[in-house]
């Protein structure tokens, strides 16, 4: 099993598994978000936080996945850069896409965003006065809705989220199908299907996520 961390293929396997785990998390997270539209976000958040074991297991798992994704990712990026010194006077990409060529950068954006997002909504260091822990809703629950609504009424803030989500879209467009390839879970026939499905999933996630800042920004959803 040592080859998982020493070999290039092993690292890609780690990245694929962790990437898929994080994609699953992102899907669940998005489903959770949708409770906002029905006014059920506070209830959902309260319920979630009552399941301490689940929350912490998930958090630990995600942290592990993150490390297992980022560390080999950066290692491989550096190795690959070394393996290809200099480029051609004219470079003609035949199949590589903008998304596939910029995985490390979209990944970085997502990483930076993740930190911000955690500080913002989870640890609530940013605008703590609007934080869910500082405000209780009429039913005595931390008021997550209020925190979200307040945040996205700022255009700059909403745009920042939308930018990060665009990076996520790009990252997943390539990442999802790529993870299937790295795990050997495809064949000649299924490759195009997986590529397309990967794009659809990434797009649905993107739309699902940006819906929140968008409708708040556009004033469709108000406090």
């Amino acid at each position: 099993m040592r080859v998982l961390v020493t070999s290039q293929v092993g690292k890609k396997v780690l990245m694929a598994v962790s990437g898929q785990l994080m994609t699953l998390f992102v899907i669940v997270h998005m489903l959770g978000n949708t409770t906002l539209f029905f006014g059920g976000l506070n209830a959902y958040a309260a319920k979630l936080h009552s399941l301490l074991l689940l929350v912490w297991t998930a958090r630990l798992l995600m942290l592990t996945a993150l490390v297992a994704h980022v560390v080999p990712g950066i290692q491989l990026y550096l190795e690959n850069r070394k393996a290809k010194p200099g480029s051609y006077a004219i470079r003609n990409s035949l199949r590589a896409t903008f998304a596939s060529k910029n995985m490390v950068w979209t990944g970085m954006i997502i990483g930076a965003f993740l930190i911000y997002h955690l500080l913002h909504f989870t640890f609530q260091f940013i605008h703590p006065e609007q934080g869910a822990s500082a405000n209780i809703d009429p039913l005595g629950r931390p008021d997550v809705s209020r925190m979200v609504l307040f945040s996205f009424q700022s255009t700059a803030h909403a745009l920042m989220y939308i930018t990060a989500l665009t990076a996520l879209l790009l990252h997943l467009t390539h990442g999802i199908q790529s993870s299937f390839q790295s795990l050997g879970l495809n064949t000649d026939r299924s490759i195009p299907v997986i590529v397309r499905s990967g794009f659809v999933v990434a797009m649905v996630l993107f739309l699902g996520y940006i819906a929140v800042p968008l409708i708040i920004l556009l004033g469709i959803l108000k406090g």
Binding site: Q8, L76, E79, N80, R95, T97, S100
Partner: peptide, 15 residues
């Protein structure tokens, strides 16, 4: 695959 790494080839990014 080990030898591939040793020879200084990069890894596959599925481009």
């Amino acid at each position: 695959t080990e030898e591939m790494l040793r020879q200084g080839f990069g890894s596959c990014s599925n481009h």
